[in-house]
Amino acid sequence: MLLEKQPPVSADTPIGITLTINGQRRALQVAPWTTLLDLLRERLDLTGTKKGCDHGQCGACTVLVNGTRVNACLTLAVMKDGAEITTVEGLAGLGDRKGSNALHPIQEAFIEHDAFQCGYCTPGQLCSSVGLLNEGHAHTRDEIREAMSGNICRCGAYTNIVDAIEDVMQGDAR
């Protein structure tokens, strides 16, 4: 690697980007190596999104980018300039998905089905579930389990998580 022969020219200059985070438009200056996860947690105090493995293996950092679930830890914020980001803090406010008690239906279903124990993976599980529902490819319990395999729950609440997702899915179908 001959990096020293061709030093980066703008590595120390923050880059201006605009993100709409949970419905709020924000103009931000970010260093290019800032992940979306670190931006949310360290700069914007949106600490609902969790840092688990920081390598895309656990799913705790799952957020929605333009309605699609991704791992925020493997996403550079600068590359998402102009995107709409939804974190667990914003699920309740998703316009078309208002539940009672100001929660998203999937949040209510997680409570109803006791779909967590320690709760660390839960924000990622919730955002991933909403992504799964948006995608519309999973229909059976086996398919839900497969489509949620990017979210690890070390407490082992999987059965109840599948119950909660299935519940909301069936509610959507009714």
């Binding site: 895309g56 799913g59 799952t62 699609t68 679930r69 991704v70 791992n71 493997l74 996403t75 991933s128 992504g131 799964l132 995608e135 489509a147 949620m148 395999s149 990017g150 979210n151």
Partner: peptide, 9 residues
């Protein structure tokens, strides 16, 4: 391969 999140990206 991978997970739904990774395949989306």
């Amino acid at each position: 391969g991978a997970s739904a999140q990774l395949r989306n990206a």
